[in-house]
Amino acid sequence: MADNAPALELARALIRRPSVTPEDAGCQDLIAERLEAAGFAVDRLRFGAVDNLWAVAGESGPLLCLAGHTDVVPAGPAEQWSYDPFAAEVVDGQLYGRGAADMKSSVAAMVCAAERFRAEHPRHAGRLAFLLTSDEEGPAIDGTNAVMRWLEARGEHIDYCLLGEPSSSSELADTIKNGRRGSLNARIRVEGRQGHVAYPQRADNALHRLIGLLHDLTAHRWDDGDAFFPPTSFQVSNLRAGTGAENMIPGEADAVFNWRFSPLQSAESIQAVVRDYCNGHGIDPDAIEWRLSGEPFITEGGALIDAARRAIGEHCGHDVTLSTAGGTSDGRFIAPTGAEVIELGPLNASIHQIDEHIEAAHVDQLAGIYHALIEELLRN
């Protein structure tokens, strides 16, 4: 199988390394060895508890970065899996394992595509780079974010960035993510006064005031989206109040909520609306703890999207849909530098699930797409 499916075999080798965030479990060492053999200069970057890798080949010109992560989410109860989550079994044409879709198969496909390209075009135009981290599924503080600061200090600029996140929906490469919504998180504790439910005049129901605020935020029409982004959405993810007793008015109430927002909004514009609603319900807006996970970004067009379309047409015979749906990705740390950024990877139907899997044949097919894209941008 290795001769005919080198990317699949590398994907299986990576899946067998249980690299649960922030552990890398030797994945980057395996990749670094292969990239060095292909003529890449490799920097291993350790920030905090996180392993990162930066590798570059080529002398000068535009820089195309292949980016991804070697860490995976926990497998959960192994006994619920049909096969060992870290055994990388291929059964009935399907590759099973934690990271099969998200995103060790993409990383393997990128490495094999780069090896082939370097062998065919040792004096290629431009530069080809890898940016890998073991902190994408976690806090994402000491991963790509930190590497981008390191690159900035060196005066390094990425022109094009291809992330291998699982973007496909129904068939391989049917969707390219050309942007992502921003993500704003908030935690609030509303302080009231505990009391007996039969004497509400002697208490201050914190939950009632919090529910009033959440109702207003849920009913608020944030925007209508635009040609690239769906409307901004608000979701409550956690709610806690009371002691469990039926006859007590809660004196405290806590909530956690999130906005996925388009460029029509900003963290500041959302916070201003929330502040007004808080004042209307007698809630101190300064009691809210805010965390901005990422700003929205978009690559509306350009050489990278054009190259991806042609590569997909060549290998899959179909056009693609551009989408900004889904959660955040490390593209949020790369796009603000001015780079064209897209995400292109395998089907995402089973990501973060028990029995995560993709079609085994898709790994080397994806390597072919990546190779064609690299050729389009750097061959001449």
Rank of each mutant, 00 (worst) to 15 (best):
E152I: 02
I15W: 15
D223H: 05
L347M: 02
F86M: 03
R180H: 00
G242P: 00
S183E: 11
D286Y: 01
R12N: 01
I188A: 02
A325M: 12
L214H: 15
H281K: 05
I283Q: 11
V197Y: 12
P263A: 07
D174M: 01
R332D: 11
G195P: 13
Q235L: 15
E79D: 14
P231H: 07
I354M: 04
R12K: 02
A100Q: 08
R332A: 11
Q265S: 04
A7C: 12
A101G: 04
A335E: 09
S82P: 07
D102S: 00
I158K: 05
L366H: 04
L10D: 00
P230R: 07
S329D: 05
L239F: 09
A119D: 10
G327P: 14
I158W: 03
R16N: 13
C278T: 09
V50C: 13
D276I: 08
N247Q: 03
Y199N: 13
Q80C: 05
A57C: 14
A153R: 10
V90A: 07
P74F: 05
L378C: 15
G345Q: 00
A153H: 06
V73G: 04
G68S: 09
R116E: 14
D92K: 05
H69I: 15
I305V: 12
L132S: 02
L264F: 12
S168E: 06
P166R: 02
V320K: 06
R123Q: 14
I270P: 03
P18H: 15
A114M: 07
L184Q: 06
A75W: 03
P250Q: 09
G195F: 14
G182I: 14
E23V: 08
Q80R: 07
H352V: 12
E343T: 02
N258C: 14
G138H: 13
E59S: 09
L14M: 07
T324I: 08
P285I: 13
H318Q: 01
A5M: 13
V20N: 15
R154T: 04
T299A: 05
N247I: 08
Q201I: 09
